[in-house]
Design a protein around this nucleic acid. Sequence first.
DNA 1: AAACCGGGGGA
DNA 2: TCCCCAGGTTT
Length: 330
Amino acid sequence: MPWKGINDPYKIWLSEIILQQTRVEQGLDYYNRFIKVYPDINALAGASDDKVFKLWEGLGYYSRCKNLLATARYISSELNGIFPKTYTEILKLKGIGPYTAAAISSFAFALPYAVVDGNVARVLSRIFGIKISFESTLNKKIFQNLAQSLLDPDFLGHYNQAIMDFGAIVCKPAQPLCAECPFKKNCYAFKNNLIHVLPVKKKKIVLKKRHLNYLLINKGDKVALIKRDEKDIWHQLFEFYLVETDRNISKNQVIEKFCADNQVESANLKILNYSPELFQKLTHQHISCRFIEIKISERLKNSHRFQWVPRSELKKFPFPRIINQYLESL
DNA sequence: AAACCGGGGGA
DNA sequence: TCCCCAGGTTT
């Protein structure tokens, strides 16, 4: 990994934020692009929201990007661009919780804080036979205390890196490599045939089904874009005119709703294209999308709510995966 | 304490 | 195609 052996807190921080809930293989290119475009924290702090979100596009969990920018700007303007050097100060930064604070503290500043991520919790749970889930704050403290007691301050960075890599490569969630595991003689889960039981499983998730009917409103050579707000998925990414329903509706129903909401005469509207149904599955939501391209001749009542963008410039804007999927299918 | 937040890889 | 992964913020 390019950040291996690096102790620049900016690079450590950036890599840790990118790797939250994200595999190394998935985040690696993003990290390299960020470092290339924004080599230091002041460069990142000076960038526009849209530019940074464009660079983050496709990586998911977009609040990470929002917090990344907020923290960069805070450090740049309030702390003279100097990254805080204590665990407590680092923990106060936006987008940084106990895991990331411990990682930055140990990797960048050689402070003796044990990291506990999902990999570490799994290793500890199996080797020591800890039959509590890693969910409640109390249980997290128990894992944290155990990890802290195991931390060897003389091999701080190596220890933290090693136990996470061990969890990711050997003590994997499914089909761990027990046969070649150096701990098999001491591992509680292995000795008691509980590898598939530990760590204790999480609870069910409630799945929500959503139908997003998008209208690509063409006017001249321009298309109407809207930036999504914070209360929902795809925060700060762009989309088209949205009619959301809890079930499938026809394109005529979508058009009808658009005309009614915007006081548009349907006679002044022409349908250019109607896409097949596209799907995207998120952890908590199944999303079905339809795209309807229309052309309108009359002036739109709420035109100021939109950003009118030439078709040729669409690729400059950050979009959710499913919208890019549609755009690439054209 | 519980709910929410994307996307990709492996079975 | 289905199942699984997981840290931080918000509610």
